[in-house]
């Protein structure tokens, strides 16, 4: 009788296997169905294919400015985000990804990326500081003053020199290689990118934001939008001092 039971069990097991046949691991998942490259419009695979290399696996801890940064996503205008993905950021290594600019991504894909960045990583929490504008031109243009590098230098000594050293030449001890008053560094970063980094800092690498007090002296007060203009003016002046190391996108590439 025992063998009869074994046989019954075997038949039952086989039947069960057939019943769940639809869920065999080998059955192709419709989600992984091959599509034409431009039909792919979901954020995660697009981000993995096109952004991870510089902006990091989770939008953080890459060499390029983090995109998974609630402050950045709170202030960057949607149109600007799309424009930079599509056309690149002049004066920085950010390339153009839009098809019309020589990249691979269709309009729908660029939009999916730009919107996905906000829907994935933008925080719902209200950021209570009065936030500086992302673009300098974003204020009332008629009354706006261009940045002043003299004021910028004074600000730099308070807000930045703690880590970047006096005049941006590098700090002391473990901050020794934090120099940014470097021709090659400044040649590869645009004023807008500088402005963005000053505003958002790099929370993933320990650089404080425009309002962060960590590592800054007691008399530091939150930077205002015009003050950020002043700091950018100072760094731009440092860049202009060195003629020979020009912007990568306008330099000796014929």
């Amino acid at each position: 009788m025992a063998s009869r039971h074994t046989l019954n069990g075997f038949v039952l097991a086989l039947g069960a296997l057939l019943a769940v046949g639809c869920d065999w691991p080998g059955k192709p998942d419709p989600g992984t169905r091959q599509r034409a490259a431009e039909e792919l419009t979901s954020f995660v695979p697009l981000y993995r294919q096109h952004c991870v290399g510089c902006h990091g696996a989770d939008g953080q801890q890459g060499p390029a400015p983090p995109l998974n940064d609630p402050l950045f996503l709170a202030i960057v205008p949607d149109a600007e985000l799309e424009r930079v993905i599509r056309r690149g950021r002049r004066g920085t290594p950010m390339p153009a990804f839009g098809i019309e600019a020589g990249g691979e991504l269709s309009d729908a894909q660029v939009t999916a990326l730009a919107q996905g960045l906000k829907s994935h990583w933008k925080s719902d929490e209200k950021l209570d500081e009065p936030l500086p504008s992302y673009l300098p031109a974003d204020g009332d243009d008629s009354t706006r003053q261009p940045g002043d590098r003299e004021r910028g230098a004074t600000l730099f000594a308070v807000a930045c020199a703690g880590c970047h050293g006096e005049n941006g030449r590098g700090g002391e001890g473990s901050d020794a290689n934090n120099a940014i008053h470097e021709p090659a560094f400044l040649a590869l970063i645009s004023n807008q990118a500088l402005r963005r980094i000053i505003i958002t800092g790099r929370s993933d690498l320990g650089m404080p934001s425009f309002a962060g007090k960590d590592g800054r002296p007691d008399d530091f007060s939150t930077l205002t939008s015009p003050q950020i203009d002043d700091l950018v003016a100072l760094l731009a002046h440092w860049r202009d001092e060195q003629g020979q190391l020009a912007n990568p996108h306008t330099s000796n590439v014929p």
């Binding site: 294919q49 096109h50 991870v52 290399g53 990091g56 801890q61």
Partner: peptide, 11 residues
């Protein structure tokens, strides 16, 4: 574009 710089290098 798809292979991240190792985070320990970035840090």
């Amino acid at each position: 574009t798809s292979a991240a710089i190792p985070t320990d290098v970035v840090e």
